[in-house]
């Protein structure tokens, strides 16, 4: 029961840090002026066009695709797989489980492997591509190591040493209902949850902020209408 309490406290703290931290960053991003009109051309000339451009950017990583096919391949594979995996994990947070979440379960399992394959590719890139290797810092390696470790420990629960999945879900729901339940103390579960807590804590102070940051790129989110509308922001507004 001690472990349940410790992990519960850590999860509450991590969730608070994640939410408050990311919201704070988003507020900072939103307030930071983009003084210059700098959409990368050819750029859309209407707001709807920008929405479409950003949609492509978020869903298929368009500019990365144009820039580098290998990075796109592994990066996109990782992100899509991660989306499936996260969606699959919704089952721990809802009762009854949505039909679509139940339906996605088998796909989510394969996505776990695809996620690791993508991460492996991205990590290999940091060793094998000279220019990338030169700018790679320790934190880049550690971030990849953390994500790989989360993926491996998760797959280990599924394929190596099962846990009492019902008890695990009860514990997670217990967190949400403020009704603490015993956590099954299997080593991979504790490892997986511990690593996720670390990820949640460093999310608002790391490169992972590209998730909200993506939407604030002036080169992608601006309408190409410098002659029709005078653009003023920050020091250009004075």
């Amino acid at each position: 029961m001690t472990l349940s309490v410790v992990y519960a406290i850590l999860f509450y703290a991590a969730t608070l840090l994640l939410v408050v931290g990311v919201v704070r960053k988003i507020i900072i991003y939103a307030r930071t002026p983009a003084p210059l009109k700098i959409p990368v051309t050819p750029a859309p000339t209407t707001k709807a066009g920008v929405v479409w451009r950003m949609t492509k950017e978020v869903t298929v990583f368009q500019s990365l695709f144009k820039a580098n096919k290998w990075t796109w391949l592994f990066g996109w594979m990782f992100h899509v797989a991660l989306a499936f995996v996260l969606f699959r994990h919704l089952r721990y947070f809802q009762e009854p489980v949505w039909a679509i979440v139940a339906l996605i379960q088998p796909i989510g399992q394969y996505a776990g492997f695809a996620m690791l394959a993508g991460l492996t590719g991205l990590w290999a890139r940091r060793f094998l591509v000279d220019r990338v290797r030169y700018i790679t810092s320790l934190s880049d390696h550690l971030m990849l190591a953390l994500l790989v470790a989360i993926g491996l420990s998760g797959l280990a629960i599924k394929y190596l040493a099962h846990t009492d999945i019902v008890a695990l879900k009860t514990w997670v729901l217990g967190l949400m209902y403020f009704d603490l339940q015993p956590l099954p103390s299997d080593i991979f579960v504790l490892l997986h949850l511990g690593l996720v807590i670390i990820l949640m804590v460093i999310f608002p102070i790391s490169k992972l902020l590209h998730v909200p940051g993506l939407f604030f790129m002036p080169t992608r989110n601006q309408v190409d209408n410098p002659r029709e509308v005078r653009h003023t922001a920050g020091w250009t507004a004075k």
């Binding site: 009492d164 009860t170 209902y177 009704d179």
Partner: peptide
């Protein structure tokens, strides 16, 4: 939103004290 956490209503076995293996093992 504090409330009782939903748990599955696991039915009691109709006979016997012990499953073919230990309960924790069976659940996993």
């Amino acid at each position: 939103v504090m409330a009782d956490v939903p748990v599955p209503d696991i039915p009691e076995a109709v006979k016997g004290e012990q499953c073919v293996e230990e309960t924790g093992f069976m659940r996993r």
